[in-house]
Amino acid sequence: MMMQTENLEEVFRYLDSFFREFIPFAKDFLDLLRRYVYPILLWLVEIIKSVSSYLPDDNLIYYVVAGIAFAIGFILNFLFEHPKKKEKSES
């Protein structure tokens, strides 16, 4: 299929204007990422590193953690979940 040159020129003109507007924005955005988001991510990785270095090699501790989670689950279920009462049918 032949493409009309006029249309093609129009497309290029559109793309040119788009990138002229978009590239300064992209630069700002990348600058924002580099300044604020990247250090926060690195800081998070450092926190995760230090926390995971404290994870012990003893299996018992993980069973205890799971047991505490079970207890919390039971308590939350006891406090908040009540079975729905059956509606009395009209006689």
């Binding site: 994870l55 090699d57 299996n59 993980y62 069973y63 953690v65 799971a66 047991g67 505490i68 989670a69 079970f70 919390i72 689950g73 039971f74 939350l76 279920n77 908040f80 979940e81």
Partner: peptide, 27 residues
């Protein structure tokens, strides 16, 4: 293998908190 088992044990406990609650509740 040890760490996968430990992960599973902890996640099993937390799954109980999640699944013993009504769906879409804060629990």
């Amino acid at each position: 293998s040890d760490w996968v088992l430990r992960w599973g044990v902890v996640v099993a406990g937390l799954t109980f908190i999640k699944d013993s609650a009504t769906k879409d509740s804060w629990r």
